[in-house]
C-alpha cells in the first residue's frame, strides 16, 4: 500500500512541476535583446563620473579644489591646474582612470561645488587601455546632459522630492517597455 501511495504522490508532484513549467512556457519571455533593445535606466543610474559644465559658458564648473581626488578610495582622479592671475585655480586637465573606477559615487558626493555628476553611459569599453583614461573634454561631454550633481540631492532631500516629481510622472511611459526584469504575466 505504501508503494502505491508513494507512486501516487510522486505522480502528482511531477504533474504539478510540469504544470508550472508549462505555465511559464505560455508567459512572455523576459529577455531583453540587448543591442537592439536597451534597458530603461532609472533616474540616478550610476554609469561613470562626469564633469558638469556651466550652461552659459560651456566650461567645466570644476574649481580644481581637489577634494574629489582625495575622496576617491582608489585615487583615480588626477587634477592638473595652474594658479591664475586672480589667485584662483584654473583647471588644465582632469583625468579619470575610468577602467578602474568602481562607480561608488563618493567623489560626486564629496564635490562642494556641484561640478561632478554620475552620467548614465555604460558602453565605455575600449580596445586601447590608454583610452580608458578619460580627460577633461570627454568628461565634460559625458556630463553635458545633466544639470545637478545628484537627481535626489543628497543634502536636500525635500527639494529633491519636489524636483524629482516630473521624473516620476515620466516614469509610467518608460515602464511600458519593460526593462531587463520586465514582466509578461
Amino acid at each position: 500500500m505504501n508503494t502505491l501511495e508513494d507512486i501516487y504522490r510522486s505522480s502528482v508532484s511531477f504533474a504539478k512541476g510540469l504544470g508550472v513549467t508549462f505555465k511559464n512556457f505560455l508567459r512572455k519571455p523576459v529577455t531583453l535583446q540587448y543591442p537592439d533593445e536597451r534597458p530603461v535606466l532609472p533616474v540616478g543610474y550610476r554609469g561613470i563620473p562626469a564633469l558638469l559644465s556651466d550652461k552659459e559658458t560651456g566650461k567645466a564648473r570644476c574649481t580644481a579644489c581637489g577634494i574629489c581626488a582625495r575622496t576617491c578610495p582608489l585615487g583615480l582622479i588626477k587634477i592638473d591646474s595652474v594658479l591664475g592671475p586672480d589667485k584662483k585655480r584654473i583647471l588644465n586637465d582632469y583625468t579619470l582612470e575610468a577602467g578602474r573606477c568602481m562607480v561608488c559615487n563618493l567623489c560626486v558626493e564629496s564635490c562642494p561645488f556641484d561640478s561632478l555628476v554620475m552620467a548614465n553611459d555604460y558602453e565605455l569599453a575600449d580596445y586601447d587601455p590608454d583610452k580608458l583614461y578619460f580627460h577633461k573634454d570627454r568628461l565634460v561631454e559625458l556630463g553635458r546632459p545633466y544639470e545637478h550633481s545628484d537627481p535626489f540631492h543628497v543634502d536636500e532631500p525635500k527639494k529633491a522630492a519636489a524636483e524629482a516629481k516630473p521624473a516620476g510622472e515620466a516614469k509610467p511611459a518608460g515602464e511600458a517597455k519593460p526593462g531587463p526584469g520586465g514582466e509578461g504575466a
Binding site: 512556457f25 508567459r27 512572455k28 519571455p29 529577455t31
Partner: peptide, 11 residues
Amino acid sequence: SGRLQSRLGPM
C-alpha cells in the same frame, strides 16, 4: 527550453 525558462533562446 528557452521558452520554458522565460527566455528566447538563440535569436
